[in-house]
Simulated assay, not measured.
Amino acid sequence: MRIHVWNAFASNNSGSYTIVGRFPSEELAAQVAAELSEVLAAQKGWRRTPGARWNEEGPEPETPSPLRAFTQANSLTQTGADWADQGELRAWSTGHQVILHDPWTLGLQDSYEEFLKVRGGKVEKVIRHAHGDLVSRFELRGTLPKKTKAATVSALVEELHADDGPLVMQAPFDIQPAWREGSKPNEPVLTLGAAFHDLAAGFTGVATLARHHGLEVTVQVSEDEALGDPLAWLRPSQPPLKRKLFDVWLLGTGYSAKEVALRLEKLRHGRYVDVPGLLKLIPDTVLKRLTQARAEQAVRFLRECGANAELRPAE
């Protein structure tokens, strides 16, 4: 008797799509983002109705989808509007910019870029079908009093690293954020580099804190395609963080390495954790640069399934 065993992973052609547009004013950018968000929410609801047709080769639905009605009203490309695979597509504004992002789709229609132009915007960046991490470079600009500038920047960095801050809640394991305070007249007050699990949450978190200190935000997005650290040019980060951060170390998996891997996936926001690879690395850091409260929560969560985990001060 012969037994043949195969171990394989299914291929998937889906990737992320990102569009960044710029508008003359923050008010117009916010309005355009709201219009897009409204039609995207309506389209998502329409797709869930029993009568909605999803097959591109089938006849058009008797009642046009919200997206088709939107493209017709704005004289935009209508091809595939009823079947657009955009269940996770989101739109939001950051300062003068409008960002559309879908983390997992086969493609986006041309109508979105067209709409940004119709509404008076300029398309700055389109990242089609990305499979790598998206790295964002934020430039925070504004006029701060010389006497309080250093203190304001330091306070902002601390706020970004709060227990619920975007650099703690949204930073992935593989790419840690970095920043640099501007020292010359034409430089941004603060340049921040980060990759986020949830682009909308990360962008909104940074922009909200920046506005609190009277700073405007501009962002550039690119796909991380190079080997090594994409934010090495910003390290070491300045000003240094005063808050102590902690890493979570895994010293042993206990009775179920599979359960530990599943829990790590949750802690890493759904990123796949390979069990054999995890076992080879032990002991090693599995989560980086968390606040003490977040690190303690993660340690407790891992210990619940028998793992030997502990927190240590981050380097």
Rank of each mutant, 00 (worst) to 15 (best):
R2W: 10
R2H: 12
R2I: 06
V5A: 11
V5S: 08
V5W: 03
N7F: 06
F9P: 02
S11F: 08
S11A: 10
N12L: 04
N13C: 12
S14R: 13
S14W: 03
S14K: 11
S16R: 00
S16W: 03
I19R: 08
V20E: 01
V20R: 09
G21Q: 04
R22K: 12
R22S: 15
F23Q: 05
P24T: 08
E27K: 14
E27F: 10
L28F: 01
A29G: 04
Q31R: 14
Q31D: 13
Q31I: 04
V32A: 12
V32P: 03
A33E: 04
E35I: 05
S37F: 00
A42V: 00
Q43S: 11
R47I: 07
R47M: 13
T49H: 04
T49P: 00
G51Y: 05
G51P: 00
A52I: 08
R53A: 12
E56S: 15
E56H: 13
E57D: 13
G58S: 09
E60W: 02
E60K: 08
P61L: 10
S65E: 01
S65P: 02
P66E: 06
R68Q: 11
A69T: 06
F70T: 03
F70Q: 06
F70Y: 07
F70L: 09
T71K: 07
T71D: 06
A73H: 00
N74A: 12
S75T: 04
S75E: 09
L76M: 03
L76G: 03
L76H: 02
T77Y: 05
Q78L: 03
Q78V: 11
Q78E: 15
A81S: 11
A81V: 03
D82F: 02
W83V: 12
W83Y: 12
A84P: 01
A84T: 03
D85M: 14
Q86A: 15
E88M: 13
E88A: 15
L89Y: 01
A91G: 08
A91P: 05
W92L: 14
T94Y: 02
T94H: 07
T94P: 06
H96F: 14
H96Y: 14
Q97P: 13
V98Y: 06
I99K: 11
L100H: 11
L100G: 12
W104E: 12
W104G: 14
W104T: 10
W104V: 13
T105C: 15
L106V: 05
L106Y: 15
G107K: 05
L108E: 08
L108D: 05
L108P: 05
D110I: 04
D110K: 13
S111P: 02
S111N: 10
Y112D: 04
Y112V: 06
E113D: 06
E114L: 06
E114G: 06
E114R: 10
L116M: 14
L116R: 01
L116K: 04
L116Q: 03
L116W: 01
V118P: 02
V118Q: 09
R119H: 10
E124F: 01
K125A: 09
V126I: 05
I127K: 01
I127F: 00
R128D: 05
H129L: 08
A130L: 05
H131R: 10
H131D: 05
G132N: 03
L134F: 00
V135I: 10
